[in-house]
Design a protein around this nucleic acid. Structure first.
Lengths: 230, 230
DNA sequence: GTCTATACGAAGATAGAC
DNA sequence: GTCTATCTTCGTATAGAC
């Protein structure tokens, strides 16, 4: 019975678990058990996001997630067979929106260069937006810290996220260089790594003590030193 | 039974567990029983440093520390009544040498400005030295990551360490400004926070993947953009 | 000072009743 | 699908013998 449940429970532990149009018995409401199941899955992922954000992956417990949702810990494991699966779902859910932030909108700075928004402005807009979602920043920061420890289950994720970010920003800087807007001697790849580093570092200080630093101002100052005005 | 399994762990890790009565007042340095106790304390702190560096504070266990020293976990608690006490000892031991690194030598960059070493060179020398002691960087990075989580026992420590670092570097930048060597428009306090952030961030990327970034080159490039040559 | 033995709790995960 | 009960492992910490 469990096996039968599993087979149709979650297609892939992806984001939307609502590929089921099926509405058993009931009419047009499409409020079947499947929809309810999807809702619960989403609620669990949301709660897990909060818990991992504030406690880290290691420090966050399934029990706390379960308590927030209002189910038992074992019920939670019915939807996500293991803690790692749950983290994966949280990460996929967030990354589906944007790489760096939760992205209030569309393209990141990398693709912005050939769009209609300035690279600098795209970065600053994202940074400004991030201040409104400290939970997300907390999640990434906590995971990054844990990733440095031996045998960390999040190491690979953090490593590839760094790769992605560096690539994205490097592309942005390269585009700027083609427009002749990159200060002489600035290497796009190194500039990208530096931007990621400064951003992470200043957000770390900000998380510890929000009054100690100004994330947006720091980023603007840094970028203004290597990017020429349009 | 489980405890018995633990006890057969080889004390091969540097320190002999053989409880021999030390010759009191004998030997080259008056090594008495007190000295032995002090030695063991030191060995424990060293082992704890390794464990916390590679596993983080939360992830590191007293058992693992005890195994490395070659004593039982309870014996370890005889020297340090709690895990926090042990961490405190590790931190004090390291901070006694230097704030940022393990300081191969004397003054940090802050006091270097009025010394005979260039601020920039002092920073780069420290960064260069840090590459040789990844454990230390790992410790600070892991603790910083944990500090962002709720109720973290290391939060206060990390917060004050950030304060200290920012103050130290701000002093260095102010001294440079008095020498007319600070680029116009650069605020010493903000520059200090940025330096700490970039440094931490780039070291984080380096810890995750040492081939991905060049810590020293990044720092040099950054500082060269805000500090004029002597 | 060092050990064995153990208390005490929390963690993730499993089995099986309903 | 959800629960209770349980397993197993691991964590810090304590008691008391030697």
């Amino acid at each position: 019975m469990t096996a039968a449940d599993r087979s149709d429970a979650s297609p892939a532990d992806g984001v939307e678990a609502t590929p089921r149009p099926a509405a058993p018995g009931r009419g047009r409401g499409s409020r079947g058990p499947y929809a309810k199941s999807a809702e619960r899955r989403a609620a669990i992922v949301d709660a897990a996001f909060d818990v991992f954000s504030s406690r880290g992956y290691r420090g966050g417990s399934l029990q706390e997630v379960a308590d927030r949702v209002g189910v038992s810990q074992t019920s939670l494991l019915h939807y996500f067979p293991s803690k790692r699966d749950l983290l994966r779902a949280v990460l996929e859910r967030r990354d589906a929106v944007s790489i760096r932030g939760d992205g209030s909108g569309g393209a990141g700075p990398g693709s912005a260069a050939d769009g209609d928004e300035d690279f600098t402005e795209a970065v600053l807009r994202q940074a400004r937006h991030n201040e409104a979602v400290p939970g997300l920043i907390g999640l990434y920061t906590a995971l990054a810290g844990e990733a440095t420890t031996d045998d960390s289950p999040v190491r690979d994720y953090v490593a590839s996220r760094f790769d992605d970010l560096r690539s994205e920003y490097a592309a942005g800087f390269r585009a700027l260089r083609e427009q002749g807007r990159l200060v002489d001697g600035v290497d796009p790849d190194r500039a990208a790594a530096a931007l990621v580093a400064l951003w992470d570092g200043i957000q770390l200080q900000w998380l510890i003590d929000p009054t100690s630093v100004d994330v947006v101002a720091q980023l603007r100052e840094h970028i203004d030193r290597i990017v020429l005005p349009a």
